[in-house]
Computed example of a mutant assay.
Amino acid sequence: MFLAVEIGDWDRFTGASIGAYLGLTPTEHSSGSSRRLGPITKAGNPHIRLLLAEAAWHHRPGYRVGTTLQARFDAATPAQAARGHEGNLRLHRRWVHFTTQHKRTTIANTAIARELAGWCWSLATTR
């Protein structure tokens, strides 16, 4: 809900630009053929970034549909429930991928938060 209030018009973004707007993309120092990526830019609303980072941590443990989530899936249309379920599975699979690649958890969490922002954008702009 907070994302919808803070962002307002989702149509002004693309799936790639929402991460940059929220400051979840790395800084870049490039010259000629050399390209170096630094820490995230931290542009945009810090509260949204914090909420996305906190939500990303929840996708780290194994994903199981509990009674509360099952009740929400039952209240949604089958297409919405399937999309929500697949999105949660995808974010958990990304955590597993980063863990097997021995990425630092804070860096992995930022990448998951950026992907979560893109997923929220896709949900908000789907007609």
Rank of each mutant, 00 (worst) to 15 (best):
N45H: 08
H47Y: 12
L37R: 13
R72D: 15
A79D: 02
F2N: 08
W10F: 06
R35T: 07
A108I: 09
W119P: 02
R83E: 05
R35K: 15
R64W: 06
T77D: 11
L37N: 03
R93F: 09
R104C: 04
A56Q: 13
W10H: 03
F98I: 02
Y21D: 11
W119G: 01
A4C: 01
H58M: 12
A79E: 06
Q101N: 10
A71F: 04
W57M: 14
H47C: 07
R49K: 14
G118N: 07
F73L: 09
I107Q: 15
Y63G: 02
A81G: 11
T41P: 07
I112G: 03
V5R: 06
I107H: 15
G62F: 11
V65F: 07
A71Y: 04
W119M: 06
G44D: 10
L50A: 15
R36Q: 13
A82S: 07
R60Q: 11
H97A: 09
L37Y: 14
T100Q: 11
A53Q: 05
F73Q: 01
G8R: 04
T99M: 15
R83C: 12
L89Q: 08
T41L: 03
R12L: 00
G32Q: 10
E6S: 10
T27A: 09
L52D: 01
E54Q: 13
V96S: 04
F98W: 07
Q101A: 13
L91P: 05
L22V: 06
G84I: 02
A79K: 03
A111D: 11
R72C: 12
I107P: 00
T110Q: 14
W95R: 10
R83I: 06
A4Y: 00
R83V: 04
W119T: 10
E86R: 13
W121P: 01
T68R: 12
T126I: 04
T25C: 15
P39K: 15
E115S: 09
W95S: 06
F13K: 01
T14E: 01
R94N: 04
